[in-house]
């Protein structure tokens, strides 16, 4: 149990979104509801993990001078493949996320991990790193969208994108108490700022503990 807690804390502290401010564009734009966040999170997790694996596989034969364009080609191929698959088998996600699916290519997290980790480590380690970072990213945007959707509409729902079946739909806050502003860009920036400050506060407190001890 303790190691699970430790793992959870590490996801929080070495958080690419709230700690390193990577992948901002998608975090702010699509987190208006839970469905979008889950759809995007899983897409990014997939692309990140597979790209880490591929780039780690070819790391010894990739000439150093062109490594960035090579990584970009790999990532772009994966993103396009995911985009086509989503368009065909889960069109609801395509309708909701729109142009942000191809924009996963420029999600700094993926290129960042490729350069910082996958290009220097073995395949298994890179795969795990991709899963790790992808999970952290997914949990971060789920947190963002939970808050935003709850405050803006009072309800949470999830729809199976493969067949449009409703998984759950619960109204939690009555309509009169909702704050629609959280659906707008203003709410997006605010929620993000608060969560980022929260993570910074936790990190600061832990740093002080380490220094004090």
């Amino acid at each position: 149990m303790k190691s699970l807690l430790n793992y959870g804390m590490s996801l929080l502290k070495e958080n690419p979104v709230f700690g390193l401010y990577l992948g901002l564009c998608s975090s702010l734009a699509i987190t208006t509801n839970l469905n979008n966040a889950v759809g995007m999170g899983i897409s990014v997790l997939l692309v990140l993990t597979v790209s880490n694996i591929v780039i780690s596989l070819i790391r010894k034969i990739t000439p150093n001078e062109i490594r960035i364009p090579v990584y970009i080609v790999v990532i772009a191929t994966l993103v396009k493949a995911v985009e086509l698959l989503i368009k065909a088998y889960a069109p609801a996600i395509d309708a909701a996320l729109g142009v942000f699916i191809p924009l996963i290519v420029v999600n700094c997290i993926i290129l960042g991990r490729a350069e910082a980790f996958a290009s220097k480590n073995g395949v298994v380690a890179s795969a795990l790193d991709g899963l790790n970072m992808g999970l952290s990213y997914t949990l971060s945007i789920i947190a963002l969208s939970l808050i935003r959707q709850l405050l803006a509409t009072g309800a949470l729902n999830m729809i199976n994108p493969f067949n449009d079946a409703v998984i759950f739909d619960i109204a939690i806050i009555p309509a009169e108490f909702t704050i629609p502003m959280f659906s707008s860009p203003i709410g997006a920036f605010l929620t993000f700022a608060l969560l980022a400050a929260g993570v910074a506060a936790i990190n600061n407190r832990d740093q002080k503990k380490v220094k004090g001890a």
């Binding site: 401010y21 920036f189 605010l190 993000f192 700022a193 608060l194 980022a196 400050a197 929260g198 910074a200 506060a201 600061n204």
Partner: peptide, 9 residues
């Protein structure tokens, strides 16, 4: 906690 990026947001 807000120093730097959170306050910027």
């Amino acid at each position: 906690a807000f120093k730097g990026n959170p306050i910027a947001l």
